[in-house]
């Protein structure tokens, strides 16, 4: 699904990713943990092609394509989805219009017919129910005046709607109450079909209680410093990152 080799990237002349490697097969769930500022969000941005994030070195293969050569929308249409840590507000553009256009962009890419307004609405309503957002959210501006939890659920809603092949969830659990956490987790689990892969960026074991990861990676100073199974997350939860002996640029080999 996704192979990252020796990825180096910088923002505003600051090196953030420093030789990151990651290999994800179809159907796998990878959790990424790591201290604040480690470069977790940056990884998501680089993979999705955000401007201002410059790749200095390395290769990324996504389903047999050179990911780094594609535009933002090509990556999305090929099935890469990023649920934002801080979803962006766009007043004036309705959530409905936004999602309809994106669904249809995906469909067009796959050579399918555009959904009619009615078909789309039916689908959108179902998912609204699933993530427990009231219907009038569809009419409001994209993320405009949404609470933190509502924004995160809106991201999950888009994920379900767009049916991507690789989902990157950037702290989709941060700032959620227990109920909202379950909604997000259930949303994710409903999409697990053995083919779709997930990268789950999180600080908390509690999300991983719901979404069992196949691998857990610790990201620090822009690279993966330790990889393990689900138990690694539990250890982090208990002991913090201290046991890794991380300070500044020290590298820990597993």
């Amino acid at each position: 699904m996704l192979t990252i080799k020796n990825l180096h990237a910088c923002v505003e002349q600051k090196n953030i990713l420093n030789g990151l490697n990651l290999n994800i097969k179809p159907g796998e769930v990878h959790a990424i943990m790591g201290p604040n500022g480690a470069g977790k969000s940056t990884l998501g941005y680089v993979l999705s092609g955000r401007e201002g994030y410059e790749v200095l070195d390395g290769q990324v293969d996504f389903q047999g394509h050179n990911l780094l050569e594609m535009t933002i929308e090509e990556r999305a249409r090929k099935g890469l989805f990023l649920a934002f840590q801080y979803p962006i507000e766009i007043p004036g553009v309705s959530n409905m219009e936004f999602m309809k256009e994106s669904v249809n962009a995906m469909r067009q890419h796959r050579g399918e017919e555009r959904l009619t307004a009615a078909e789309f609405l039916k689908k959108a309503k179902e998912i609204c129910k699933q993530v427990q957002l009231p219907l009038d959210f569809l009419k409001r501006g994209v993320n405009e005046g949404f609470s933190g939890g509502e924004k995160k659920r809106n991201e999950i809603m888009q994920m379900i709607l767009l049916e991507p092949s690789l989902c990157i969830l950037d702290e989709s659990d941060s700032g959620l109450d227990v109920d909202a956490l379950q909604i997000v987790a259930n949303g994710v689990n409903s999409q697990r079909d053995g083919k779709r892969s997930f990268i789950v960026i999180t600080h908390y074991q509690r999300l991983l209680d719901y979404i069992e990861p196949d691998f857990v990676h610790i990201l620090a100073n822009g690279k993966v410093v330790k990889t393990g199974d689900a138990s690694l997350a539990k250890q982090v939860e208990k002991e913090g990152y201290a046991f890794l002996g991380l300070d500044n640029s020290e590298e820990v080999t597993a």
């Binding site: 535009t71 933002i72 934002f84 766009i90 553009v93 936004f98 256009e101 890419h109």
Partner: peptide, 19 residues
Amino acid sequence: YLRSRGISRSQALVMLNFG
């Protein structure tokens, strides 16, 4: 944000302008 959901740049600009 719009492009990361698969919407083309030119279409996104029209949407944002209209918004």
